[in-house]
Design a binder for these strands. Structure first.
Lengths: 180, 180
DNA sequence: GGTTGCATGTAAATGGTTACATGATTGT
DNA sequence: ACAATCATGTAACCATTTACATGCAACC
């Protein structure tokens, strides 16, 4: 699933600029399972425009570059649906946090405790944001995916809270720590 | 966290060949949060060897390439701990599955139902594997991370099971489906 | 006075995957 | 007979990130 398809997905919900698409991946409903940077979004939008999958309308602005507002075309909608019909590639998860914790025995207990604490705070903040946004007009799929994100993040945060002290105590028993 | 560090992590648990390291990322205790291919592992092991972070011992084999068994050195252990002390990069999650489901409204209900069903089966299979492997001699960190994986996968599978029918019914009501 | 937000875009560097090359053995 | 497992390695290819370039406005 390349950035072009991701952009089409965002635009299928309404017109947007490149900048706004970036935000959809940072804070929006896609943020917890896909991401894209400016360096990939802008070229993707150009390509989509060339292929006729999106239309663009420039909006003049004071003392700023023109805002380029993109909207999906009928051809673009077909391309999106075609991409959605392809078998999804396996999910990819990359977590340095979990890798580091796998070796908690070699680390100062204070560091392990801090890392877990920060992660709990992060999950709780995400949960608050995801739960608050309760706009009525959400399509079934979006709602389903949001619910899944909430369920998973809650499970993660709860687990960390429930087992944090236990882990820190266990490695606290072991000598030979590196100073932090 | 580059492949070199990942290899050091695996080797800190005991000597292994490149082939065995690959398996650790496919089926082992790291499989749910990191992955690496041969094309990155073999060059990484060569580099680690050059830097003196691992040692290698060739084991002759009948009618097969020599098995190169790598083991971590004292210098390698220090390098691993140093890498573990660096602030972890943010977790990355990439899920075409969730992206596709976000647009369930545009898809045939049969496809949505099948995708969810397959995913549930996958989670349940992973859970069975992770729960069965109850070797006693596991360091605290490994156990903690394994427990977290189980908690999260279980939450995901449970959520999918609980909301599958609801989603399929909701999009089933809507007309204008593409034939599968 | 420094950071953040708005707004677009390019180029180099990165780091990795995919595919290829080789080949015996074991299981279906 | 065919696929999978074991076993190592290289090179081309790829997509994306990072850093840079530009610049004003608002906030702290």
């Amino acid at each position: 699933m390349d950035v072009k398809t991701l952009c089409l997905g965002v635009l299928s919900r309404g017109e947007a600029s490149g900048y706004e698409i970036k935000k959809a991946f940072e804070e929006g409903p896609f943020s917890h399972f896909h991401q894209a940077s400016f360096g990939s979004i802008y070229p993707a939008l150009n390509a989509l425009s060339t292929e006729g999958l999106v239309q663009l309308r420039a909006q003049a602005q004071d003392k700023r570059p023109d805002k380029k507002i993109y909207s999906i075309t009928a051809k673009g909608r077909n391309a999106l649906i075609a991409a959605l019909m392809v078998e999804p590639a396996p999910d990819v998860m990359r977590s340095d946090f979990l890798f580091i914790l796998s070796f908690a025995q070699y680390l100062p207990p204070a560091r392990v405790d801090r890392l877990i604490g920060e992660r709990i705070a992060w999950y709780r903040a995400m949960l608050a944001r995801m739960e608050s946004c309760s706009c009525a007009e959400r399509p079934a799929g979006t709602d389903f995916v949001r619910g899944m994100g909430i369920a998973v993040y809650r499970a993660a945060a709860d687990y960390l809270e429930a087992h944090r002290a236990e882990l820190v105590a266990e490695i606290g028993d072991v000598p030979l720590q590196v100073a932090e």
